[in-house]
Design a protein around this nucleic acid. Structure first.
Length: 301
DNA sequence: TGGAAGCCTGGTGT
DNA sequence: AACACCAGGCTTC
């Protein structure tokens, strides 16, 4: 079948100048990007395969798979998140004792605005897991249940909720999702038939949205807060894992006896709608320091 | 109401 | 190279 080839499928996004692709795309909030800062990153947003790299004047991207949308720059900019939110956060926290230095060291890190359904599945798979494995799991679901939209080994559109529901948990077990398989199938059914109005949760308050998510089996407070932060526009979301908990005690003097739930409340009280950005910077700093990667060393190479 | 065990499987370190 | 140990959590008891 003939396909119209448009030669201008490369776009520059000047307002994205300063965004660091490595920490933003491969730092634990999104799981479908592969590559390095040198080669650029290849991945899927919606029904398209993108190739992304950093240029002198901002991020440049090329659509290399799927039917090109009418306004790719708008879709891409939306995915990169709300830059105005970041500038406000930066202004409020550049003098903060803890976040201030992290803002200098990792100032290209942004909170993305992803698709809620795909993001929900990704974080259900995140339970007792790690980034490489989450990427493997999400990739398997896309490859086995989604439509091919490019010629690469990972160029598949993430399947819709009804397709995942109909696949069933035996199939997901085959795809090595383990004990998370029934959780994913259950969530898929709820989204597919509207019992969980996932996309509407962007338009309700944080508490209400969080309550709706945690009502579902397999979604506790941590996973809910990840989805709320990374795809449902909730600045108050503050996912607490062991690393974040440690960071709060170590850097902000939070009492050690708090459990994760109380720690999240403590942080939300303190950071308000900046909580999600604070969380992401704390998490990234902990993760990098845990790997012995210092900003100075990064700058040197 | 808090706390610990068990869950699937692949990454990580030795 | 193989083999423990354990992981960015949740539900259940």
């Amino acid at each position: 079948m003939a396909q119209l080839v448009v030669e201008t499928n490369t776009f520059a996004v000047p307002e994205s100048k300063g965004i660091d692709l490595e920490s933003t795309l491969d730092g634990g909030q999104a799981f479908r990007w592969y590559g390095t800062p040198e080669t650029g990153y290849r991945g899927v947003i919606g029904g398209n395969v993108y190739l992304i790299s950093s240029g002198g004047s901002g991020i440049e991207f090329e659509i290399i798979g799927g039917s090109p949308p009418s306004d790719p720059v708008a879709i891409f900019t939306n995915y990169l998140g709300h830059n105005s939110d970041f500038e406000g956060f930066r202004a409020r926290y550049e003098s903060d004792e803890v976040i201030g230095p992290a803002l200098v060291d990792w100032d290209g890190l942004r909170v993305l605005r992803q698709d809620p359904w795909e993001n929900l599945v990704a974080f259900i798979t995140s339970a007792t897991s790690n980034v490489p494995r989450i990427k493997l799991n999400v990739g398997s679901i896309a490859r086995e249940l989604g439509d091919r939209i490019g010629d690469g080994e990972r160029d598949f559109q993430f399947p819709s909720p009804d397709v995942v529901r109909d696949a069933g948990d035996d199939r997901l077990r085959e795809l090595r999702l383990g004990f998370r398989a029934p959780y994913i199938v259950d969530a898929a059914g709820r989204v597919a038939d509207g019992r969980l109005p996932l996309y509407d949760l962007r338009n309700v308050g944080y508490e209400e949205a969080r309550f709706a998510l945690t009502a579902i089996k397999g979604i506790g407070e941590k996973i809910a807060d990840c989805v709320l932060a990374f795809s449902l526009d909730k600045g108050e979301a503050f996912p607490v894992d062991r690393w974040i908990e440690r960071a709060l005690v170590q850097w902000y003097g939070m009492p050690e006896n708090k459990n994760k739930s109380a720690a999240a409340d403590w942080a939300r009280e303190r950071f308000g709608t900046d909580a999600a950005y604070v969380n992401q910077y704390l998490f990234h700093r902990q993760r990098m320091e845990g790997r012995g990667i210092s900003p100075a060393a990064k700058r040197a190479d």
